[in-house]
Write a protein that binds this DNA or RNA. Structure first.
Length: 279
DNA sequence: GACCAGGGCCGGC
DNA sequence: GCCGGCCCTGGT
């Protein structure tokens, strides 16, 4: 790990394994990590605006060492040994082995809870490019504007208060379609304390999932995505249309959840990426 | 230009 | 528990 300057930006340069920025950005779990024409990535998260790139086993990220250690190492789940997880996968499971071969650089991010709730309500019955667009639109219209010294203006993710104050029509005008009232009602339920986001991270998986499903627009699948991508309950195994088809085709006798207890969600994510980009 | 399908959920039965 | 309906749009 070393610090270096690239133009005026301060970068951390970190050696990484089982890590592929391009795969992470395209994995459909985060919607504000965007590939730029230059090939670099920008990311708005945790209140910051960053630029990132990867050269083989080195990640370059425009943050201070302090922020890397306190924020981003955790965000990218650097303390989990993905290599060990991959090695535990059944050698004879040709599907998972193929998925690992294609998607082995995906990681389960530890994203902010509120943002993950809203982005995955938006995600239902929707394509990823449109999800990104909807997310960016609500950030521009309802998020606070901030300025990064080097990268310029950006918009924070809107607060529950800001979204609860929007009308359904205004939200529909963001391209949300029938999800517009879901966002508004969910924001209101968070504001009035019907669901307490502060205590959610302390709950076990089943209880967190049940609590999240009180929110409007959050069913089983979306709740499991929130549990996996924000609360890091890696037993969560969201089944969307792709995964449903994949399971029917490759695991007609059932997926071996028992064998992979404690990290099935990581394998789900390898599978999801493989279904989306690997064939 | 038409058509399809998308990281599903809600409400009524 | 099982439908029907739902907004819209990027990609083919």
């Amino acid at each position: 790990m070393e610090m270096l300057k690239k133009e005026t930006l301060v970068f951390m340069r970190i050696q990484v394994t089982d890590f592929d920025l391009e795969q992470i950005a395209a994995s459909g779990q985060c919607f504000r990590m965007i590939k730029q024409d230059s090939g670099d990535y920008t990311l708005i998260a945790m209140g910051q605006y960053l630029t990132l790139s990867q050269q083989e086993d080195y990640l370059s990220i425009s943050c201070t060492q302090e922020d890397w250690e306190n924020i981003w190492a955790q965000y990218f789940d650097m303390n989990t040994d993905y290599g060990a997880i991959k090695e535990n996968v059944d050698q004879e499971d040709t599907y998972l082995q193929a998925a690992i071969g294609i998607a082995g650089g995906v990681r389960i991010l530890r994203q902010e809870l509120w943002e993950t709730i809203i982005t995955f309500i938006i995600s239902q019955q929707n394509h990823i490019p449109r999800i990104r667009k909807c997310v960016e639109t609500i950030c521009r219209r309802y998020g606070e504007k901030a300025v990064d010294e080097k990268l310029g203006e950006y918009y924070l993710f809107p607060t529950p208060e800001a979204l609860s104050a929007a009308t359904e029509d205004e939200l529909r005008a963001c391209g949300l379609g029938y999800r517009a009232p879901y966002l508004r009602k969910t924001a209101q339920m968070v504001c009035d304390g019907t669901v307490n986001l502060k205590t959610l991270p302390g709950l076990p998986y089943d209880e967190a999932k049940k609590e999240l499903m009180k929110l409007c627009g959050v069913g089983i699948k979306v709740a499991e995505c929130i549990c996996l991508f924000a609360l890091h309950h890696v037993d969560a195994f969201p089944i969307d249309t792709h995964i449903k088809d994949m399971l029917a085709e490759n695991y007609p006798e059932g997926f071996p959840f028992e064998r992979y207890k404690g990290y099935a969600g990581i394998l789900q994510q390898y599978g999801f990426y493989y279904e989306l980009h690997g064939k």
